[in-house]
Computed example of a mutant assay.
Amino acid sequence: MLLTTLLWIVLSKVVLAQQNGDSVATQQTQVQQELQALKKDVVALNRALFVLEEDLLFPASTQVAVFVSLDIGRFFKLDSVELKLNDSEVVGFLYTDLQRRALEQGGIQKIYTGNIKMGTHQITALFTGKDNQQRDVKRAVHYSFEKTEDAVMLEIKIQDDSATHKSNFVVEEWIL
């Protein structure tokens, strides 16, 4: 019964299309074009919703973001990082070989985004890895910063130092 009804509807549309001078192929092309336009609208709407969500969850007046970058990585092979904000652990991350290579090739990882009040804050990052002689190494970097009404963006750089054959851990505050 259902199959008969569907067949009748399809045949009716074909007959109406032929009566109107439209071919089935023309109608299919129009439907495909409308579908493509609808897909583009959905992608644009999804992008706008993502931006709105970011603005609502992390407004600039309270936002702090922390990034990690790695120089060449000759003197420190990064295994993991633990990030503390005002003595509270906010994130920990264990690196795969692929992620480490991406950082060694100039990538920058956004490791944390959060909200904080205005005032003075301290961030601590504890890095574990291996030195160039394959010994286990733990290094920490501490940084105090002032949160104002603007977003705070901090980059923790692991930089090779050829003079000492060690890596330096430096925090740089981005000026927006």
Score class of each variant (00 low, 15 high):
Leu3Arg: 09
Leu3Phe: 06
Thr5Gln: 09
Leu6Asp: 05
Leu7Asn: 12
Ile9Gly: 00
Ser12Thr: 08
Lys13Leu: 12
Val15Ser: 07
Val15Ile: 06
Leu16His: 07
Leu16Ile: 06
Leu16Phe: 08
Ala17His: 10
Ala17Lys: 08
Gln19Lys: 11
Gln19Thr: 06
Asp22Cys: 06
Ser23His: 03
Ser23Asp: 05
Thr26Tyr: 07
Gln28Ser: 07
Thr29Asp: 10
Gln30Val: 08
Glu34Leu: 15
Glu34Arg: 11
Glu34Ile: 07
Leu35Pro: 00
Gln36Arg: 12
Leu38Asp: 07
Lys40Arg: 12
Val43Leu: 09
Val43Asn: 10
Val43Asp: 15
Leu45Asn: 11
Asn46Val: 10
Asn46His: 12
Arg47Gln: 15
Ala48Met: 07
Ala48Tyr: 05
Ala48Val: 02
Leu49Arg: 04
Phe50Leu: 10
Phe50Val: 07
Phe50Cys: 01
Val51Cys: 02
Leu52Asp: 12
Asp55Asn: 14
Asp55Met: 06
Asp55Ser: 08
Asp55Thr: 06
Phe58Pro: 00
Phe58Tyr: 15
Ala60Asn: 11
Ser61Trp: 01
Ser61Met: 05
Val64Pro: 04
Ala65Trp: 08
Phe67Trp: 08
Val68His: 06
Ile72Tyr: 11
Ile72Pro: 00
Ile72Thr: 13
Phe75Val: 03
Phe75Gly: 04
Phe76Ile: 07
Leu78Ala: 11
Leu78Gly: 12
Leu78Cys: 11
Asp79Ala: 13
Ser80Glu: 05
Ser80Leu: 04
Val81Cys: 09
Val81Arg: 02
Leu83Val: 15
Leu83Asn: 03
Leu83Ile: 15
Lys84Gln: 14
Lys84Val: 01
Leu85Glu: 05
Asn86Gln: 03
Asp87Ala: 10
Asp87Phe: 04
Ser88Glu: 11
Val90Ser: 03
Val90Met: 00
Gly92Glu: 13
Leu94His: 07
Leu94Trp: 08
Leu94Val: 13
Asp97Asn: 10
Leu98Ala: 11
Gln99Val: 02
Arg101Leu: 12
Ala102Leu: 11
Gln105Ile: 00
Gly107Lys: 02
Ile108Thr: 15
Gln109Pro: 00
Lys110Gln: 13
Ile111Lys: 02
Tyr112Trp: 05
Thr113Met: 04
Asn115Asp: 02
Asn115Met: 06
Ile116Ala: 04
Ile116Cys: 05
Thr120Arg: 13
Thr120Asp: 12
Ile123Tyr: 02
Thr124Pro: 00
Leu126Gly: 01
Leu126Asp: 08
Phe127Ser: 03
Gly129Val: 02
Asn132Met: 10
Asn132Ile: 08
Gln134Trp: 02
Gln134Asn: 13
Arg139Phe: 00
Arg139Ser: 13
Arg139Ile: 03
Ala140Leu: 09
Tyr143Glu: 05
Ser144Asp: 06
Ser144Phe: 03
Phe145Trp: 02
Glu146Gln: 14
Glu146Leu: 13
Asp150Gln: 15
Ala151Lys: 14
Val152Phe: 07
Met153Thr: 14
Leu154Cys: 04
Glu155Ala: 08
Glu155Val: 11
Ile156Phe: 01
Ile158His: 02
Gln159Met: 14
Asp161His: 06
Ser162Ile: 08
Ser162Met: 08
Ala163Cys: 01
His165Glu: 15
Lys166Asp: 13
Asn168Arg: 13
Phe169Thr: 01
Val170Gln: 04
Glu172Gln: 09
Glu173Gln: 15
Trp174Pro: 00
Ile175Gln: 14
Ile175Asp: 12
Leu176His: 12
